[in-house]
Amino acid sequence: MARFLSEDWTPMNRALAIALTLSLALVASVEADTKKYGTPLTLKDTTKVSAIFAAPATFDGKRVRLEGSIVGVCEERGCWIALSSDQEFQSIRFKVDDGVIVFPLSIKGRTAVIEGVVSVQEVSVKAQIEAGEHEAREHGTTFDASKVKGPRTVIMVKGEGAEVF
């Protein structure tokens, strides 16, 4: 220890420092290539997104595995992705706790398999306006609060794991 800290570094000291740096860089580069996010998926059967929209109450609180194209990614924190449904004009949001998974914007358009628990919530007018204004700020656009006509049922999946292909 004292010798390592001494003024005169031996070739062995230099080699150790270089080896440590290279091994850390290697670990970092291997991890950067992974396309799995969060905890491993456990379910084998895939549920259709359209089935959840057809009968939300049936799926509320149930764990599901979904597959679809990524049609939206949280620009601010990477804390959600939107998956396209098997039916047109439908998508479902997959929300993760902030910081647990950070989805990069570059995965937009790719296919994802996700797993989580379906959440069906009635969203008040006030909450819709707040969310709309927040999203508009994020996208640098404006939000027309007059378009909110009443409470809305929001279906999302809250989870901890995803695979992106």
Partner: peptide
């Protein structure tokens, strides 16, 4: 060709590329 295409409503289509939508 785009990675994928999505129609959020009957009047809109979104085409997804690696760095552009």
């Amino acid at each position: 060709p785009p990675r994928s295409a999505f129609r959020p409503d009957p009047e809109t289509i979104r085409l997804f590329y690696e760095h552009a939508t």
